Computed example of a mutant assay.
Amino acid sequence: MALVKAGVVVLDCAEPEKLAGFYKEFLEGEETDATANRVEIRGADGMRMAFRRDMNATPPSWPRPENALQAHLDFVVDDLDEAERRVVGLGGRPLETKDASGPFEERGYADPAGHSFTLRRVTPTAPKTG
């Protein structure tokens, strides 16, 4: 029997209700728990996130070095353009990023509280033969 049952990504922010709403809509999820200082959601795919009130939270400044990255989330999507429209429509904003090399297409964004995340589409590869 595992000692740890599950993990939850927790983001500090000044307004947890508002940030939870952004991710709840983006992940097509539901709110699972809420207190005065913490809101937890579960996305449609089962991903769990929580948002903890910290009135002194400072948003990361990525890609600028002044306030480092702090944390970074990656979301795999089928359609980058559709996912971008949803993010921007919910109050997120694109971040200036360079094209990444490798088997992924990705775009960087910030949520309404300034936390950075990436939308990533896996480029299909042909199966190996021989």
Results as ranks from 00 to 15, higher is better:
A44C: 13
A100R: 09
D78N: 07
N56Q: 13
A36M: 03
A20M: 06
L73C: 12
R121Y: 06
L11T: 00
M1Y: 10
K98D: 10
D78V: 01
P65Y: 12
A34W: 09
R107P: 05
Y23R: 13
F117V: 07
R42W: 11
R52C: 13
S61W: 01
A14M: 05
R52E: 15
V9W: 05
Y23Q: 08
A34Y: 10
V76K: 11
R93Q: 05
E15K: 06
L80M: 06
T97A: 08
A50F: 14
V88P: 05
D12E: 07
R86L: 02
E15V: 04
P65K: 14
D33W: 15
P65F: 05
T118R: 02
R107S: 02
D33H: 15
T35W: 13
R53Y: 00
A20N: 04
A2S: 12
W62D: 00
E25C: 09
G92Q: 05
T32R: 15
P60G: 11
R48Y: 04
S61T: 09
T58P: 00
Y109S: 09
T123C: 12
T125F: 13
A71V: 09
V77E: 10
A14T: 01
R85E: 02
S101W: 14
Y109M: 07
D33Q: 10
S101H: 15
A110C: 14
T35K: 12
G108S: 11
P112R: 15
R86Q: 04
M55E: 06
L80H: 08
L80Y: 08
E25Q: 15
S61E: 01
M1C: 06
M47K: 09
A6S: 14
V77M: 04
A44R: 13
P16A: 04
G46R: 04
G29F: 09
L80E: 10
F104A: 11
L80Q: 13
V77L: 05
Y109G: 14
L73H: 14
R42P: 11
E66A: 15
G29E: 09
L19Y: 00
S101Y: 08
R107M: 07
A126V: 05
E40Y: 05
R42Q: 12
D79E: 14
E28K: 11
D81I: 09
D111I: 03
T118S: 08
P112I: 12
G114Y: 00
D78C: 01
G89D: 02
A100M: 07
Q70S: 14
W62R: 00
V77N: 10
N56I: 00
R42D: 12
P65C: 06
P65N: 11
T129G: 01
G102P: 01
Y23P: 12
L11Q: 10
T118Y: 06
F26A: 04
